[in-house]
């Protein structure tokens, strides 16, 4: 995966000085007495893939919703390429931030192609009059939209299913379609909310490749994910959100080594003897599990960065059964 990261440096975008695409400062979101997100700062630079992780209920999706205008942050501001984002989700999309949803929200009874065409909405201007009068401009714009939509479907590998109803697609393809639909709005930043949830390992690998390809198109990506292996392979930087606050931000190795992150996922050991025993038991179990995992992986002849493996597998253990 590291090779992929370096190939990106060769692309023209990356050689240019890195521009800050997303700049969230002190974003706080309160629902009544509950503070779901508290003073989170996060920047995403162009050509970067940034991961956002944290245990369930940490406020990741709420933070996403604050970024995309679905929620209006109680405090703080979000800038996209230096401009403060308007508080309406459709204006945020028009500005250049596209997103996918944690629970897939496709337009189920539209065809695959139509779904992507809906994504083109902000980049086309034809209104009702144009549709009624059907001048040459209408046909040209419609044809261009279709061509672009088909390109995107080709890109995610769904071109052959363009006329299928999106509800009939298998789960993994629905996720891909959601990404294609988001890409259709020509974003500068793509927010992916758990893009591999419910996927098998092969599909996860394919999604990884897809995200790299998107980054190589010059689109910055911010991704929420529970699958640690996916995050660590993919992301240039990872931010950890715990109970609404940002705990740490850094490259994947730093985050993995940080004890607070482990504690946030697994809880802190008790003081005293019973705690030590418990910890020892857990360690033993982990060692056993790791040994098993390693033998499996050897069988699969997959070369992995083994040193990182221990913490990666152990920390978000609950997600690994996917």
């Amino acid at each position: 995966m590291t090779t992929d990261t370096t190939t990106q440096d060769a692309t023209p975008d990356a050689t240019a000085p890195r521009e800050t695409v997303l700049d969230a400062r002190g974003v706080t979101m309160r629902f009544g007495g509950l503070t779901a997100v508290r003073g989170v700062d996060l920047t995403v630079n162009s050509g970067e893939i940034v991961g956002l992780i944290g245990p369930n209920g940490a406020g990741k999706t709420t933070f996403f919703n604050c970024l995309t205008g679905l929620y209006i942050p109680t405090e703080g501001e979000v800038r996209y390429k230096g401009k403060v984002l308007p508080p309406k989700s459709f204006k945020v999309t028009a500005a250049g931030i596209a997103r996918t949803f944690q629970n897939i929200r496709l337009f189920a009874n539209m065809t695959v192609l139509e779904n992507v065409l809906v994504g083109r909405h902000t980049r086309t201007k034809e209104g009702l009059w144009s549709a009624l009068l059907r001048g040459p401009g209408f046909h040209r714009a419609e044809a261009a939209s279709r061509a672009r939509a088909m390109e995107l479907l080709e890109f995610v590998g769904l071109a052959h299913k363009a006329e299928h109803l999106s509800r009939n697609l298998p789960y993994g393809e629905q996720r891909k379609l959601e990404i294609a639909r988001a890409l259709a709005s020509e974003p500068g930043l793509l927010l992916l909310d758990e893009p591999t949830a419910g996927m098998n390992p092969q599909e996860t690998r394919a999604t990884e490749e897809l995200v790299f390809a998107i980054r190589d198109m010059g689109i910055a990506v911010l991704v929420i994910e529970h699958d640690m292996r996916f995050i660590m392979n993919l992301c240039d930087r990872v931010a950890v959100l715990v109970q609404g606050e940002k705990l740490i931000e850094g490259d994947s190795a730093t985050v993995q080594r940080d004890e607070r992150v482990v504690a946030a996922y697994l809880g802190e050991p008790f003081e005293g003897a019973p705690g030590d025993e418990e910890a020892a038991e857990v360690e033993q179990a982990e060692a056993h599990a790791q040994a098993q995992a390693e033998t499996e992986e050897e069988a699969a002849a997959e070369a992995q960065a083994e040193s990182a493996e221990t913490t990666t597998d152990a920390a978000p253990g609950k997600e690994n059964d996917r």
């Binding site: 995309t68 679905l70 309406k88 989700s89 459709f90 999309t93 028009a94 596209a98 997103r99 949803f101 929200r105 496709l106 337009f107 189920a108 009874n109 539209m110 139509e114 065409l117 809906v118 994504g119 909405h121 902000t122 639909r181 988001a182 709005s185």
Partner: peptide, 19 residues
Amino acid sequence: RAWIAVREDETAARAMGIN
């Protein structure tokens, strides 16, 4: 298409840039 999208899922439609 925007009408149908709004009918199907208004939140998603707004996230796709539809007012």
